[in-house]
Design a protein around this nucleic acid. Structure first.
Lengths: 343, 343
DNA sequence: TTGTATGCGTTATCAG
DNA sequence: CTGATAACGCATACAA
């Protein structure tokens, strides 16, 4: 009877078992199995051992190797809201880049609150990850930094910024927010509402900062009534749009800081009999694949989620090999489609 | 200088270091730190040791413990197409359930091809995962089964079925496909096209099977021209809809086996000047949050992605504790909205 | 190049 | 209940 209670399993052989069959010492097998230095031919003995290991179905035990070398070839990823398509794209890019570099990723996708996220960091560190990627919404939280520092594991913020003391790879959200708003201003809109996402999410507030930038540059005073905070989901878009459109002096255009919320706003417009873009202009953010195919395709800002993931892993790999990680801010692009028009 | 080249890090203390300070043996610390049996008070000595460990910032090393116990408290998840929102929801549910049970998840999201997926399975097994969840599209592939058997690790198919020899937790895709098609039949449609997804994806072909079921029951011969295979993305929906609508005798209704493809079809309808639902009825699949908010909200089938994830982890936990895993097929629900009408 | 010995941090077994 | 010891599987410093 085996540990898990199954019956017949072919046990994976260990180095020692290979060695016994080969008539050499385990350490010899260990050495024979490690990659030959480039340019050098493996000796006949090495080839023999490798063939035997292969035949016996040898597979290295990463746990044992990790204990010995103090390197697990594992990257921890703390990534709340994984169910969101944009976040998932980011995650897939992280995984692909890590895998290509010989790393695996250990994922935690805790709720959007500080405590669970701290627990996630601890758990990943307990598993001796070689590096840590964090897309938390609460990076500014002091305890967060303390935890990240504690273990000395190279840690990088992805898609978010917190404190300056942690290196971050993000998209240029502030510019994105400004581009979206400037586009509406150029079309002649003067009352522009913004569905601004959660207060504690740096992506959201940086896009909102860009919105403020644009208005300020245009000499238009910022009306705080026009800034509504909600969540990133469809429901948030619905709630936000209703708040804005119920104002005594409602906006003629709405900028939602993500596409999902923009679609929620779309539903509200539909229910109120407002035509897009004639009665209301709408701008989203992220350019998720769906929004280009809507009956009225959505004007939006394309944010390079996959590139952010790739770049983050690259920086982290650098950090893990003793180098200095540097912050990256990747460019975004305004995609003008049919949901915005002049007035 | 530490391994990774940083300077000042507070090294995490080991059991031995705690023991030295406490003036006891490491094994005593180990025992003191494991949970007291419920109902029993921890002794004064145990409390003293725990307080000291806490004060010194002790964190258990899972790698070392795993080597010793042969249990890593890790579940491997092979989950292609993670960038898809539905898959990501499934993944998040898996993670949450696993975390709640004290497990972490190691993720691989390989491309939709056999070879990379086999590699993913091997890599996860090399890391001594205690159990394996696989949402591969290629579960039928013989090599796939061989690999899954090889290590004796409890393995479960999620969201897919392959061969009967592997236990699976899925949604009832066949019924879903039938419900969608029956709805269109009841509305009077007789030429119903289906954007049927990839041939090798069991979810897709089971939904297609349900489509065939419905037609057969209604005594309507299946016209193979009306079944077009594409991918799961927006682009697939566009290509599929174009193929169908270019037929000499085009369908009056289209059933897309996922919402994303349905939105692609929506774009095609828009470009061709076809009104939904008057000129063309459209049914999707999954009920992603967006589609309820479209100008014409989409009729679709709600598939319980999160529940599938939860149930899969529950079954796997059962299997890992020596029990017998059993197959689950979770119910789906037709959601009728505005994109379908009679003719 | 090969074998020997040691240790990574933990837990299980055994004797006291 | 505690301490000592061994072992998990591997990698490496050192000696041969």
């Amino acid at each position: 009877m085996t540990r898990h209670g199954e019956s017949a399993r072919t046990p994976v052989p260990t180095l020692k078992e290979i060695a016994d069959v080969a008539g050499v010492h385990a350490s010899t097998v260990s050495r024979a199995l490690r990659p030959t230095r480039p340019g050098r031919e493996p000796s006949a003995e090495v080839r023999r051992i490798r063939a035997l290991a292969d035949e016996m179905g040898y597979r290295p035990n990463f746990i044992a190797a990790g204990l010995r070398t103090q390197r697990t070839r594992t990257i921890g990823v703390v990534i709340p809201r994984l169910a969101d398509g944009v976040i998932a794209s980011l995650c897939q890019a992280i995984e692909a880049t890590a895998t290509a570099a010989g790393y695996q990723i250990l994922i935690a996708t805790p709720p959007d609150e500080v405590e669970p996220q701290l627990r996630s960091i601890d758990l990943l560190q307990d598993r001796q990850v070689d590096g840590l990627l964090i897309t938390s919404l609460h990076l500014g939280h002091p305890e967060m930094l303390a935890r990240m520092r504690a273990s000395g594991v190279p840690t990088l913020a992805v898609n978010r910024t917190g404190n300056d003391s942690i290196t971050a790879v993000t998209a240029d959200d502030r510019t994105g927010g400004r581009l979206a708003t400037e586009h509406l201003l150029e079309l002649g809109h003067r009352r522009i509402g913004i569905i601004a996402g959660p207060r504690h999410a740096s992506t959201a507030w940086r896009r909102t900062l860009g919105y403020r930038d644009a208005l300020t540059r245009a000499g238009i005073p910022v009306d705080d009534q026009l800034i509504v905070h909600t969540d990133f989901e469809v429901e948030g878009g619905i709630a936000g749009a209703n708040l804005l459109l119920d104002l005594p002096e409602p906006p003629t255009a709405i900028f939602a800081v993500n596409d999902t919320a923009a679609v929620g706003a779309l539903g509200v417009a539909r229910d109120r009999g407002l035509r897009i873009p004639d009665d209301l202009s709408l701008v989203g953010y992220n350019d998720i694949p769906l929004v280009g195919q809507l009956p009225v395709p959505l004007t939006t800002v394309r944010s390079p989620a996959a590139e952010v993931g790739v770049s983050a892993v690259e920086q982290l790999l650098l950090g893990m090999s003793g180098g200095e990680m540097s912050a990256r801010t990747l460019p975004v692009e305004l995609i003008v489609r049919g949901s915005t028009t002049g007035r």
